[in-house]
């Protein structure tokens, strides 16, 4: 086999770790390493609509991904609009004051305080989805930035940044995640007072993002290394393009596919991660509802046997969202991966 295949192979596992670390080390959707062929097809200045069109068509032909996109879209829409339409999620129904099976008045029933489960779910969805997207975009942004810097400048910048990434990835993710989560959650910690004014969900999202960017930075870097000496970059440089312009306009767009796949999967990782933190008592604390803490709170054998709706609906919300996001990620990868184009 050609020697050129080696570096790409050697990096394979790392790209997998990328996905793992975002998901708190538990949930790993394998990200396939971008293939060299794709890298070698230089996409200078977005070659017209046709390619975009192609990608979109390819995505839509992935039936599961397309359906998932519709489901996720409606989820987001419901969560965005719902609170204006539905009743106050924290409103206590004084006439009921008990868990009530789904009915016309309460489509998804009420929880043990008599609060409408649907209204709470929709409200919680805002927080959960917000956490998902903030984490995904945050981690992708940091990871892409570090990766591009390291790959483009090479040399000392590269070794310093990649060494840092290496160090951070050596620390077992669980203790790191938990200690940082405790750090930002506890006002008696050193940074507690500083972050006190930041909404709790954002603090948790920030923690997940800050600990989840390392994998993607490695993948981006390896892409950039192979791009940096390509003719189109040389050309841009010869034409007097500044470093930042070259990185932003010429190099970054060529990394879009890996970043897109990573970002999608990071959304689901973050939603699952938040629920795990909620279980450990380190997530968003009630009364602010998230799907994770609703499920963690309702998790009880008696509840699942007698008030199944208080347990199953939050579980389903997480399940459907994460499932859709993963399918979308699958679709995005197939669509952007020229190899799978027929």
């Amino acid at each position: 086999m050609s020697a050129a295949a080696q570096p790409s192979r050697g990096h394979l596992p790392k790209s997998v770790r990328a996905a793992q670390s975002v998901a708190g080390g538990t949930q790993a959707a394998p990200v396939r390493q971008p293939y060299r062929r794709e890298i070698e097809a230089p996409a200078i200045a977005a070659p017209a609509r046709t390619q975009r069109q192609q990608v979109w068509d390819s995505f839509c032909s992935h039936r599961a991904a397309f359906i998932s996109l519709i489901i996720l879209g409606s989820m987001i829409f419901i969560c965005a609009v719902g609170p204006f339409v539905l009743q106050d999620p924290e409103a206590i129904d004084y006439d009921v004051l008990a868990a009530q099976a789904p009915s016309g008045a309460h489509l998804f029933g009420t929880d043990q305080l008599g609060r409408d489960v649907l209204a709470r779910l929709v409200n919680a969805g805002r927080t959960s989805l917000a956490i998902g997207f903030v984490v995904a975009f945050g981690a992708a942004a940091i990871g892409a930035w570090v990766g591009v810097m390291a790959g483009y400048f090479g040399g000392r910048v590269d070794s310093a940044l990649m060494w840092l990434v290496n160090v951070l990835m050596t620390i077992p993710s669980l203790p790191l995640l938990m200690s940082v989560a405790v750090l930002v959650a506890s006002p008696s910690s050193a940074i507690g007072p500083l972050v006190k004014s930041v909404p709790e969900w954002f603090r948790i999202a920030a923690v997940l993002a800050l600990l989840g960017w390392m994998g993607i930075s490695r993948v981006v870097r390896s892409q950039v290394v192979s791009l940096r000496n390509q003719e189109f970059v040389e050309a841009a440089r010869a034409l007097g393009g500044t470093d930042s312009r070259i990185m932003l306009v010429h190099i970054l767009p060529n990394c879009v596919s890996v970043i897109a796949v990573f970002t999608t999967l990071a959304v689901s990782g973050a939603i699952i991660g938040e629920s795990a933190l909620s279980f450990l008592g380190l997530g968003v604390s009630p009364p602010t509802a998230t799907w994770g803490n609703m499920l963690a709170e309702a998790r009880d054998l008696f509840a699942i046997m007698n008030y199944w709706w208080t347990v199953w609906f939050p579980a389903l919300a997480i399940f459907i969202t994460v499932l859709s996001v993963n399918f979308i990620g699958d679709g995005v990868r197939d669509a952007l991966d020229p190899k799978s184009m027929k």
Partner: peptide, 28 residues
């Protein structure tokens, strides 16, 4: 393949403490 994909994605989409509860429920 589709069944396997769907079920692996489904496994990934379930919070582990919920899976644990379902297993306990099954045992009961």
């Amino acid at each position: 393949d589709y069944v396997a994909t769907l079920s692996t994605f489904a496994m990934m989409a379930s919070p582990s403490f919920f899976v644990a509860l379902l297993l306990q429920l099954a045992a009961v």
